[in-house]
Design a protein around this nucleic acid. Structure first.
Lengths: 227, 227
DNA sequence: ATCACATTGTGAAATAGTTCACTGACAATA
DNA sequence: TATTGTCAGTGAACTATTTCACAATGTGAT
């Protein structure tokens, strides 16, 4: 339950901030542990904390009126969670689930806002982090509206989406993949088969092994015709 | 060509910043005028300026490999442009076109960064502005991947997208509407007819008049079955 | 007024993706 | 080991959307 300064330094927010300063604020954080599968933050609610991912992987998603889920991001360690509602005062903009066991450091809204105000270097870090996220989101947006499922899946495997490359240990189901690329489970299943036949991946239960990035690259570009 | 402090105060970045401070930095801005239709910022280029919209409307868009355009935002006066590349150091994340004659105030990257560093209140404004944008983008993202064209069009007319309600004076073509909702011109044409028949809008060349928001609301929710 | 051009309207064919319905495979646990 | 439940595979019907092709309409420039 002790908050470690070295772990804080690995967060995007605190990169380049010196240990002495972090030493002063470490007491403001609380460690939170989530089991795999835990929905620890619900869309639409008001949660007055900011979270940092120390370890594990978090799925950030939105659910539409008709129940369809769209994954916005697979957040790896170093990422912050729930920034948006903190800074714009609105409700939580997305839901979060732990895809693996997750360790978070949590800090109260009022505390982090105070710390920020007193620390311009930190604010610049936040600004950069938010800017990177906007770029990522708008790339995803463009992609979702232009390329087709096959290409989107290939891009996913190339690590173009969540920022993290998908590894074998993730244990994502085909349904998960579907909501990552904004499609249906069946479509993902069929597309995976195609990519497998082309030698890009090998499928097995709850995991996909990447075999040939060049093949994926070609599929991602839509250069390939499927017959 | 004179930069006016009162106009600066109307920008999201400078809201709540007092006139005396703005007086000190006004000399850093340059006024830029764009004709309607001018593509004044290209995606992928490096442009070391931040822009503020004083008047007019700017279309912010991305173009995919196969030439399809997706509109990210219709930016109204008060908005800043090109923030992302400024803060993350990457190339321009989107292209920009003036949809009307536009007046911008431009400031050099190094200048605005210096001003920011010296002014924590300003930084907090930036953080809030970026957070609002992330929320907007992720709503758009969810929407594009879930609802269908008819519903997306209705939402567009309800002002749920670009943040601004579409007015008659905009002179958008059906092709423009298509790239706003991520669809094709023909599909937009047919959908507009449907909405018109239901009494939600009245169409005329290059403009759409909103007649009945309740009808639009129902269409947006997907409550309506089209026969 | 006329010509050229951009915009709009529309049918029909093609396509991508969804949904449904069901089967088989696997894994956990009782 | 039997049972239960989740996950993966797959055909078939259906739906939304795109694409193509072309006609009609309006607009601006000369």
């Amino acid at each position: 339950m002790t908050i470690q300064v070295e772990l804080l330094q690995a967060m995007r927010y605190f990169s380049g901030i010196d240990a002495a300063q972090l030493e002063h604020i470490r007491h403001l954080f609380k460690e939170v542990r989530c089991d795999k599968g835990a929905h620890f933050l619900a869309e639409g609610n008001y949660t007055d904390s900011l979270y940092f991912i120390i370890s594990g992987l978090v799925k950030v998603y939105k659910t539409s009126a008709d129940g369809k889920e769209q994954v916005l991001h697979l957040a790896p360690p170093g990422d912050s969670l729930n920034d948006v509602s903190l800074y714009d005062g609105g409700p939580n903009a997305a839901g979060m689930v732990a895809l693996t066991p997750v360790v978070l450091y949590a800090i109260d809204k009022k505390d982090i806002l105070r710390v920020l105000r007193e620390n311009p270097a930190l604010m610049m870090n936040v600004i950069r982090a938010l800017a990177e996220r906007i770029r990522r989101d708008s790339n995803l947006l463009e992609d979702l509206s232009s390329s087709q499922v096959l290409a989107r899946l290939a891009k996913l495997f190339l690590g173009r989406y969540g920022g993290e490359e998908l590894t074998a240990g993730l244990n994502l189901t085909q349904k998960d993949l579907a909501s990552l690329v904004g499609s249906s489970r069946e479509m993902v299943n069929r597309s995976l088969k195609v990519i497998e036949e082309m030698g890009g991946i090998r499928m097995s239960r709850r995991s996909v092994i990447i075999l040939d990035k060049d093949v994926l690259q070609k599929i991602a570009e839509g250069t390939v015709d499927i017959i």
